[in-house]
């Protein structure tokens, strides 16, 4: 128990290793052991970040990438959630749709990139399509799984206590499925960024991935590393957002209460 109680005291301990690594990286870059063409110094990356923020390139690309990611998430996640509800609540829909969807799931969505470029070129639709397809499956699968795993005793209780189907869904099935749905969302957010990195790196005229590829042409490794770090940061941010959602909506669950 006490290991958890002194969480605050342990906290700085976790920062020692990354701190030392960062320090070694900076020192080796400054002393010239590490050529800037291989790996630029952390200070150079920070400087690049500052310069690109000032000239507006970074905020513009960050905005474009975030918008793409969220639009893809809303479209693909929305369809996945809707179909997950449909197949979760109706056996006929499940038998009709689920086998096909499970089959399509085995196609790696990134393998479709050549087809997607043929269909959409390198326009916005291509990236939206890929992101939407990527986030669709984790949300679909976990929504279906969550609904199927709602305690049948609670559903029976709801029926015996006279709940209408609508009320049963709102009061019992949806809250019961929510933990699984949020797990799906967390997976989806990871896939969302990953898909966007690939899509923007291969075929885009803007966005963080495009910024990194353009910088590569001029050997601007500082900008490339900056782009990578920003992707990492965005991923962490998305993860923290889901954790916050879990703490908000799963307060009732002792496992999420802190």
């Amino acid at each position: 128990m006490s290991r958890y109680q002194d969480r605050k005291e342990r906290f700085p301990l976790a920062w020692i290793v990354p701190g030392v690594l960062l320090f070694l990286w900076q020192v080796s870059a400054s002393l010239g052991w590490l050529p800037a063409t291989i790996l630029p110094a952390p200070s150079a990356v920070l400087a690049a970040g500052w310069a690109l923020t000032l000239d507006g390139t970074l905020p513009a690309n960050l905005g474009v990438s975030t918008l793409r990611a969220l639009a893809g998430l809303v479209i693909g996640g929305g369809i996945g959630f809707g179909l997950g509800l449909l197949t979760g609540l109706s056996r006929i829909s499940e038998r009709l749709l689920d086998p096909t969807l499970q089959m399509v799931r085995n196609v790696p969505h990134l393998a479709l990139i050549p087809m997607v470029i043929i269909w959409f070129g390198i326009e916005e639709e291509a990236r939206l399509f890929l992101v939407a397809l990527g986030v669709f499956f984790p949300i679909y699968l976990n929504t279906l799984h969550g609904i199927r795993n709602v305690d049948p005793q609670l559903i029976e209780m709801g029926r015996v206590y006279g709940m209408s189907p609508r009320r049963l869904f709102r009061r019992v099935i949806l809250p019961g499925a929510l933990p699984a749905i949020l797990v799906g969302l967390r997976y989806a957010l990871g896939i969302m960024w990953l898909t966007l990195i690939v899509a923007e790196t291969i075929a885009a005229k803007s966005g963080i991935g495009h910024m990194a590829m353009a910088a590569r042409e001029f050997m601007r490794t500082d900008v490339v590393v900056l782009s990578i770090l920003i992707y990492a940061l965005l991923g962490k941010l998305a993860d923290s957002a889901t954790k916050a959602l879990e703490r908000r909506f799963l307060r009732w669950n002792p496992a999420y209460r802190r």
Binding site: Q153, L154, E156, M157, G158, V160, Y161, G162, M163, R167, R171, V172, P175, G176, L178, L250, W252, N253
Partner: peptide
């Protein structure tokens, strides 16, 4: 008629009072 089950069958995501209010329906 109302039924009490062998298990409490409370909704874990609803407060104790909200669980009791389930017995009142709408």
């Amino acid at each position: 008629a109302r039924l009490v089950f062998q298990e409490p069958r409370l909704l874990p995501w609803a407060s104790v009072a909200a669980n009791v209010a389930v017995g009142l329906g709408e």
